[in-house]
Each structure stands twice: as C-alpha cells, then as structure tokens.
C-alpha cells in the first residue's frame, strides 16, 4: 500500500537553530498515526513542512504520492495547536468562509455545516458571535472546520485540549470513524493514554530528531523490562531467578535476574501445587513511561533513532 504521507530526512533551520533534523516517517490510509514529542521537539515545524506552510531546508515530503499542490491542500484537514476563530464574527459565516477556502461550493458547505453543527449540538448557536461561545464550543467548531470538506488526510494537533470528557469521547469517536472510512489521520498529543488507545503507529521526535518510530505494540514489547505481572493466590516471592517481588492491590510484579526469562517463571509456576494463577503477563511499560524514559535518556544529546517496523 502506498503511503499517503512520506517524509524523508526532513530538516529545517531557523537562523542557526536547527529545529528539525533528519525526520522520516510514513503514514498510511486507515491508520491513526501518533506524532509525539516533548514541547519544542519540532513536531509543529514538521507538520508545517508537511503542509507546505514552511519550506524544508533538507529532505523530501510526498503527499498523496507526490509533491504538494493547491488541489491536494483541499484534501487535507488541519487542526493546528495554535488555533482560533474570528472572535467578532458569527459562527456560521466563519465556518462557511473556512469551508469555501477548502474548495467547497457554498451551497454544499452550508448543507454539510448544518449536519455538523447538529452533530456537535452547535446548531442553536450558529448565529452567535464566536466570542459568545464557550471554549469547548469553540473547540468543537474548530474540529468542524477541520472535517467539513471531508478530507482524505487529517492532521490534528492536541485535538482534545479544552474538551470535557463527553466531548472528548465524541471527538475520539469521530476520529475513529474517519479512520474506519479509510482516511489517514496524524494525531499529535501529549495525552499518552489516548495515543495508546487510538494509534497503531507512532513517531517520537525529541530535539528535532526521530528517537522512536514504529508500531505501538512492538515498541512496548521491546521496551518491556525483564519482569512479569501476576495475579493469583499463593506466595510468589520465593521463585528462583526473581530479584524483587512487589505486591500491590492484589497483583504481583516480579523483577527477574538477567539469566531468567518470563518463560522460566511460567514453567516454574506450572509445577507448583501451592499457588493458583489467575493472570500471567509479561510486564510492559506504558507509552507514558517509554516517552519519559526515551526523552530523559536522550538528555541534551541527539540519539540514534530506534525503528520498530
């Protein structure tokens, strides 16, 4: 399958400061791709280069199989992190203006806007000025502006900021529906649990460089330490090869020595009659832990990218 977005060795300087260094990744149809990194890592600059807002100083960007064109831009929906709407204009004319700028005919835009406004419970507020809407309402309006022209590539930067749990779930569902419809979605967020729940693949950028790239599951497995999680009855602390056994909320976390594998522990437990196993799993770190680990490990020094195909 050809990638919708293919970024190769992208780099960007601002004066002498190299904001992005050799960043590469690909995004495919029907996937939600996580673009992650600490503040100032170069995520937004990478997105802006991808969207042809900034010209890269090095590397190539391919969108929909080639260079960016004005027609291709109309197939992209972008929700930037630094976003807003015309505060002193009405909600409806603001969204219509943004929709027509994306190539929509005004009549179609008006019809589709009505559907979206009703879906987001904003229809009754369409005549109000944007500044009269709550922050959450404005956030939803911005998501409408991103999706109203039915884009094939959706780039959302912190899509859940400012939303309450109900609307967060609504936006999550809408992004998932877009993915199921075969759209490529690039999502940048600091909410790692959302990434774990929604993204199939991620790229982690730190200090302008790619430090992690691949499938979420594989990354987690590869970052798993030599440890197992156990739930059951009995004493699991005296198993051979266990360096440390911690018990919390009825579950055991066993840290193993270098010569012992989770498989060895599994075999050892299988022959014991004094314990009963209810759950046994290789302990995997959360994406949050991996993020912090990688970023802290990198420190101020650029590190080699770890790729997980």
């Amino acid at each position: 399958m050809n990638p919708v977005v293919s970024v190769t060795s992208l780099s960007k300087y601002f004066g002498r400061f190299r904001a992005v260094k050799d960043v590469s990744f690909e995004v495919y149809r029907g996937e939600i791709f996580g673009l992650l990194g600490p503040n100032g890592a170069g995520k937004t600059t990478s997105i802006r280069m991808l969207l042809d807002i900034f010209a890269p100083d090095g590397g190539t960007v391919s969108v929909f199989g080639g260079n960016m064109t004005e027609a291709k831009k109309n197939r992209i929906g972008y929700l930037p992190e630094e976003r807003g709407l015309y505060q002193d204009l009405g909600l409806e004319p603001t969204l219509l203006y943004l929709a027509t700028l994306k190539g929509m005919v005004e009549a179609d835009a008006r019809r589709r806007l009505e559907e979206w406004l009703k879906r987001f419970d904003l229809y009754e507020h369409r005549a109000k000025k944007v500044q009269e809407l709550s922050r959450g309402m404005q956030q939803k309006a911005q998501i409408i502006a991103t999706l109203i022209h039915d884009p094939d590539l959706i780039i959302v930067d912190e899509p859940f900021s400012g939303l309450d749990p109900v609307n967060t779930r609504l936006v999550k569902e809408i992004i998932e529906v877009q993915r199921q419809a075969g759209k490529a979605v690039i999502m940048s967020t600091h909410q790692m649990y959302q990434v774990e729940a929604m993204c199939t693949r991620i790229v982690l950028i730190n200090q302008g460089s790619t430090v992690l790239y691949g499938e979420v599951g594989q990354i987690k497995r590869d970052f798993a330490g030599n440890a197992v999680n156990l739930v059951g009855q009995g004493d699991f602390g005296d198993l051979p090869g266990v360096l440390e056994a911690r018990r919390r909320n009825g579950a055991w976390h066993l840290t193993l020595d270098a010569g012992t594998s989770p498989q060895d522990i599994f075999h050892a437990l299988a022959v014991r009659d004094d314990v009963r196993i209810e759950r046994f799993e290789v302990a995997e770190p959360s994406l949050d832990d991996i993020f912090i680990h990688v970023v802290q490990q990198a420190g101020g020094v650029s590190s080699e990218a770890r790729t997980y195909a």
Binding site: Y78, L98, A145
Partner: peptide, 16 residues
C-alpha cells in the same frame, strides 16, 4: 494582526 491574535492565520495558510 487580528488574524494573528485570533490564531486563524495558520488555518488560512493551508489554503492561501
């Protein structure tokens, strides 16, 4: 300046 202040400009720059 109001498009900068309202932060609409980045959305516009994708179309213009």
């Amino acid at each position: 300046s109001s498009e900068k202040e309202n932060r609409v400009v980045e959305i516009l720059l994708l179309s213009l």
